[in-house]
């Protein structure tokens, strides 16, 4: 994981992870992720984890931590490049937290639901679902 004392800004070619902890966010037919997983709520920001300087093990541990504190099952993660968010006029900001120095937020979402859905649909179409190893 990143050094908390030295967090670089998110670059557009970085890979980001959105942990999936709701089974109805995955298409069982082909293991892809629905736009539902990328709808921002309750604030107009979407929580992500940067792959930068993180091992697979560290990423999964963070996913398990996120799922465990919420008493949910970690189904996997949706990996997507930061440029997919930028293409939708969203900004991905590094927002390290104590438990996760690689934490980031996608911000600047519109308030209109249909517009949110359209951006989420485009981003989801560019994502790759990685099932949880556990």
């Amino acid at each position: 994981m990143l050094d908390p004392a030295n967090i670089p800004p998110v670059s557009r070619d970085e890979l980001l992870a959105r942990f999936v902890i709701s089974s109805n966010h995955i298409r069982g037919s082909n293991n892809t992720v629905k736009p539902d997983a990328f709808i921002p709520h309750p604030r107009l920001e979407l929580s992500l984890t940067r792959h930068l300087a993180a091992t697979e093990d560290e990423l999964w541990k963070e996913g398990e931590r996120v799922a465990t504190i919420r008493s949910k099952t970690l189904y996997g993660r949706a990996d997507v490049l930061a440029e997919a968010f930028e293409a939708e006029d969203l900004t991905v900001e590094a927002k390290p937290i104590l438990e996760n120095p690689n934490h980031a937020d996608a911000i600047n979402w519109p308030a209109d639901k249909a517009q949110q859905k359209m951006k989420a649909t485009e981003i989801a179409s560019k994502s790759h679902f990685v099932p949880s190893p556990s």
């Binding site: 709701s22 109805n24 966010h25 736009p35 539902d36 309750p42 639901k113 859905k117």
Partner: peptide
């Protein structure tokens, strides 16, 4: 296919491929 969003909305999705989908 039925799903749900965190703002409390239910979703109905018709999906053929990544570039042919409606929610």
């Amino acid at each position: 296919s039925v799903g749900a969003e965190p703002d409390g909305h239910l979703t109905l999705e018709w999906y053929k491929s990544q570039r042919r989908t409606l929610s």
